[in-house]
Simulated assay, not measured.
Amino acid sequence: MKTLSGTLCGLLLLGMATGAASADLELEGHRLVVSGMLDGSAIKDFESHLAGGQVRTVVFENALGGSAEVAADYARAIREAGVNTEAKGQCQAACAYAFLAGKERRFGRGFQVHALLIPVAGRPRTADLAGRWRGEGAQRTLAEFTTRSSEAPAVDEPIPKDPWQPNQGVLFTSAPTLFGRVSNTFYCDGTQGRDLSRCELLSDADPHKLGVLTP
Rank of each mutant, 00 (worst) to 15 (best):
E61D: 07
D73Q: 14
F99D: 04
I78L: 03
G137M: 06
A71M: 08
R56L: 03
C199K: 03
T185F: 09
T126C: 00
P207H: 09
A21K: 13
L196P: 02
G137F: 02
L27M: 12
E157Y: 09
R132W: 14
D156N: 09
E104M: 12
V83A: 02
R134L: 10
R181S: 11
D73I: 07
P158A: 09
G82R: 04
E200I: 09
A130N: 04
F46D: 00
V182I: 14
P119G: 02
S149I: 12
L171P: 04
F186W: 06
G53I: 10
K2Q: 12
A20I: 00
L12D: 01
A101W: 03
P119K: 08
K2T: 13
L100I: 07
T173H: 05
F111M: 15
G211A: 06
L196V: 10
G36N: 03
Q192N: 07
T141C: 08
E28Q: 13
T141L: 13
G131H: 09
R56I: 03
G89H: 07
G65P: 04
L11P: 01
E151N: 10
A77W: 02
S5A: 07
V212L: 08
D162C: 08
A205R: 00
K209T: 12
F60G: 03
G36D: 00
G36I: 05
L27V: 11
G40W: 06
S149P: 07
A63S: 13
E151H: 11
A71Y: 03
L14E: 13
A77T: 06
L196H: 08
S183Y: 15
A98C: 07
K103L: 10
L142Y: 10
L8I: 13
Y187E: 05
D204E: 14
I43A: 11
F172K: 00
L129Y: 08
R56T: 10
